[in-house]
Simulated scan of single mutants.
Amino acid sequence: MATTEFGQTVRRWRDRVSPEAAGLPAGGQRRAAGLRREELALLAGISVDYVTRLEQGRASHPSEQVVEALGRALRLTSREREHLFHVAGLVPPGQGTVPAYITPSVQRMLDRLTGAAVMVSDATWTVLLANPLYTALMGEPRGKERNAVWRTFLGSGGNRVRHSPQSQRALEIAQVSGLRATANRYPSDQRLHRLISELRANSTRFAELWDSGVMGHFETAQKTIDHPQVGVVTLDCDLLSVAGSDLRIMVYTAEPGTDDAERLALIGVLGTQSLVGEAHP
C-alpha cells in the first residue's frame, strides 16, 4: 500500500516540476509540462528503470538515500519531504544525522548560478546535487563514488582534476580532517560510521592519516581539468558553505573573455546536447 502511494506521490509531484524550474533545457515538444522520468532520474542520480518501477509500484522499500535524492530533485518543501519519507515507510532523518536537505531558497540560488559548474555535497562530501554543467565538466559519479573521500582513497581513478603529489596530499589531509570533524558533530550517524569503517579497512593511506590526527583544510584555488572532449581547461574553484545546514557548495567558474571561458561554455553545450538526445517523451 505504502509503495503504491509512494509511486503515485512521486508521479504527481514529478508532473508539477517544469524542466526550467529544475535547471534543465525544455527539449522541444513535450506531452506534459512536468519532468520526464529520464530527467528525474538524472537529477536524482538513479536509473530510469528504477524510477519507472517505483512509480508503478513494482519496486519496494526505497532506501533513505533514494527518497532524499528524489525529494531534492522534486524541489520539495520540508513538510512534503517528510510526507515522502512516510509514504516510503521510512522515518525522516532527525537530529544527530548529517543533514542532506536542500531548501527551496538555496535551490533557487543555485539555479541562478548560470555559467558556473556547481555541485552541492553534505558534510561527508557525498554529492547531493550537481547542475548539468558540473556533470558535463566532471562526469557523473555513481554509487559509492558519489562520496569524494571514498573516490579519493578507494575509487577507480577516473578523477578529471590534475594533481601534483603536493596537491594530492593536501587534498587527502583536508578530506580526512573534514570527515573527522563531521564525525565529531554527528556521533550517532550510522551511515557516516560505516563509511569511515570501510575506508579504514580498505585504504592503508586513509587509516594512516585518520590515526595520525593530522589536520588540514580546503583552500580556494585554480583547478586544471582534463576534459575528454574539450581538452585542458583551468578554472577557479570556490567552496561555499550554507549556514545552519552544513552543506558545501563547490563552484567552478572561468574569467570572462578567456579561452577557458570559451571551453567551459562549449562543455555546457556538449552536455546539453547529450541530455536532450538521451531524453524521451
Rank of each mutant, 00 (worst) to 15 (best):
L270A: 07
G157E: 08
F206G: 09
M119T: 15
F218I: 08
V87W: 03
P99L: 01
Q56M: 01
A33P: 00
L171P: 12
Q8F: 02
T182Q: 10
F153W: 04
V48N: 03
R200I: 01
S203V: 04
G71F: 01
Q56A: 01
E39Y: 06
G158P: 13
R58P: 04
W125S: 09
G271I: 12
L133T: 09
D189L: 06
W13R: 05
Y134L: 11
P132Q: 11
A279S: 10
R16H: 09
R108E: 14
H280G: 11
A116S: 15
A243H: 15
A21I: 03
S274K: 11
V161I: 15
P165G: 07
Q29K: 11
M1D: 10
W13L: 02
E80A: 04
E80S: 02
S212N: 11
V230I: 12
H227R: 09
R11C: 02
Y50G: 03
T152C: 14
E172L: 09
L247W: 14
D260F: 04
V149K: 04
L195A: 09
L275E: 09
T103W: 10
A183H: 13
L270T: 05
D236V: 08
G157Y: 05
L275N: 05
L199P: 10
G34P: 05
H61E: 12
L264V: 08
E82W: 00
F153Q: 08
F85W: 00
L179V: 10
G213S: 03
T3K: 00
G89D: 06
D189R: 04
V214E: 13
H280R: 08
H83M: 00
D226I: 02
I249F: 10
Q107M: 12
A44N: 07
P187Y: 05
E208V: 07
I173Y: 13
V17E: 02
E208R: 06
H217M: 14
A33R: 09
R142M: 10
M109V: 14
T135S: 15
A26R: 12
T272S: 14
R248L: 15
S241A: 15
A22R: 07
L275Y: 04
P132E: 13
T9A: 03
R31I: 14
L240D: 11
P99N: 03
L154W: 10
L266F: 03
R37E: 05
Q65D: 15
I102N: 01
P228M: 06
E219T: 13
V269A: 07
T135V: 15
N131R: 06
V98Y: 06
A170G: 01
S203N: 05
